[in-house]
Each structure stands twice: as C-alpha cells, then as structure tokens.
Amino acid sequence: MMSWFRTPPAQRSVVSVFMPVALLLAFCCVSSLLLGAGSVGPNASLQVLLGKGTSDAIFIVYELRLPRLYIGLTAGLCLGVAGALMQSVARNPLAEPGLLGVSAGSAFTVAVALTLGMSLSTLPIELAQIGALLGCFFVIGVAKMQGQRNDPVRLVLAGAALTSLLTAMTSLLLMYNEQAADEIRFWVTGSIAGRNIEQLTRVLPSLLIAFVCVLYVARPLASLALGERVAIGLGYKPSRIRLIVVLAVALLVGAATAIAGPVIFVGLVVPFAARALVGPDIRRTLWLCLPLGPLMIITADVFSRLIAQPTEMPLGVLTAIVGAPVLLAIVRAQRLPTL
C-alpha cells in the first residue's frame, strides 16, 4: 500500500487508481438515491430500493432522484473529459472548457430566448447546445483567420475575448429585461434538479459523436504533448487534431450546459486531480476523468440538497465549494501535476 503512494503518478497502473475512484463514485451514487431535501430519509429510500416503500417514497426515489443521478453522471462525464482535452490541447493547465466561448455562447442564446419571451421551463434543450457550438466555431474561425492555426494560445485568447463580449451582451440584454434576468439568475448557477430522462436522450447523439472523436484523437493528442515536431514525425496533423478536439469539447460542454446549466469549476479541477493521480499522459488522464467528473458533480449535488433543507442550494455554488479545497490541496502538494 505504502509503495503505491511512493510510486510516481505516471508509473502507477491506471486500474489501481481507477478502481478505488469508481468504488467511491458508486458509493456516492447510492447516497444520492438515499439522501434528499425531502422527508423521505435513507431508511425509507432503502425500502424503496429493496422493492417496498410507500408510493410517495417510490415516486421520489425513482422519478426525482434517479433521473437526477443520470443527469449528474452525464454532465460530470462531459465536463471532466472536456476539461482534460482542453488543457491538453491548449497545453495550459489553466485552460478550461468555458474558455472556448462555449459556456458564454450558450448563456447568450438562453438570454436571447428568454428576452424574446420564452420561459426557462419550456426552453428547448437544444438551444443551449446550439449556442455552445456557435460560440466555439466563432473562436476557431477567428483563430484560423490569423493564419496561425498551430498556436493554441491564440485559440484561448480568442475564446477569452468572445467570452467577455458575450457576457457583456448577455448582461446588457438582462439589464433591459428584468423578467428574463429573474429567470436566468437560476439557470446560470446550474442545477440538475427537476430534469427528466427525455432531456438526456436528446443530447445523446452529440455525446456519441464526441465519444468517437475522443477515441480517434486520444493517441495523436498524447504524441502532440511531446511536441509539434514529434507529432508530425509520427504522421499526425496537429491542426486537424486540434480541430477535432475543439469540436469534441464543444459538443461535450454544450451537452452538459444544456442539461445542467453552466456548472463551473468541474472542467478545471477534474483534470488536475486526474493528473495528480496518474500523471500527465492524456490516455491515462482521460480514463480517470470518467469517474472523477461525475464524482464531483454528484457529491456537490448531494450536499446541495442537504445544506438548506427544505430548499436546495444551487449546484454551481456547491461544485466550487467541493472543488476549491481539492484544487488547493493539489496546489499545496510537493509536486504540482504539470502537463
């Protein structure tokens, strides 16, 4: 056991790290079915899981907590993987998926829709995703126009510029429409409550595309981390790899934002935690991001229900509260898990 801790992260076997994290995630998933802001406590919920229980309890566990668990798993998966891809392709540990203009793009489309008289509860789920993709394509376009496709810094800078611009426009829209502001106030903090499975199925196609992209790109991305020339020497085209990665990130973050709102911090913390556990190789980090992202969202969600009963805290607040100590611990570690 002690030898495991002494082994440098990059030399640990992925399975030896993946299994405990996955077990922890399983534990959190069960807790998320057992605990809630309502009167149905762990005992009553356990009865339901064993096939008994009152109709109220059955409804709460299967119709409210279970869809919420699925949504949390998916959103966490998307954000964690997108974060790792983004940091790897930008070769910048501070890069997070939101920097591509993705979150700002979806927030802007949602704000426009609300200003045009739509209501948050009847908003089509695809809207946030379309906004995310538009934002991302705009950023790629700008970075390309420079003729400097091989410079990831430009990509991040263009993303930061677009994010500021869209955030300002969103604020402006909301200034002049207080009703939309009232509605979006809840959307921006993110939440996975009150969603249904049907919303999840509508983002599945884009998740599939992203999944294929990630499979295709994982190996070339790892060689790209060794340097542009190495990648070219191995027969890969860095610009094409980047394009595919950015597309995958936009699809993933767009899907997560559509189902859970712009949940902050997950895309930044999860890749860091993964690197601290298994080292910087993207092929290994991605495996770890699979359970770590959902773990973070579901832990935050369980807390969000328990802290302010009978109401709930916004998820985005809790992800920051859960994530910040993790990131601080990593910052204070002797060896910072660099890329």
């Binding site: 309502g38 009167s39 809840f186 009978p310 709930e312």
Partner: peptide
Amino acid sequence: SSALSLEN
C-alpha cells in the same frame, strides 16, 4: 419562501 425542493 426560498424555492422549495421538488421533493418537498
């Protein structure tokens, strides 16, 4: 009140 949890 604050927005109630759907469970409540």
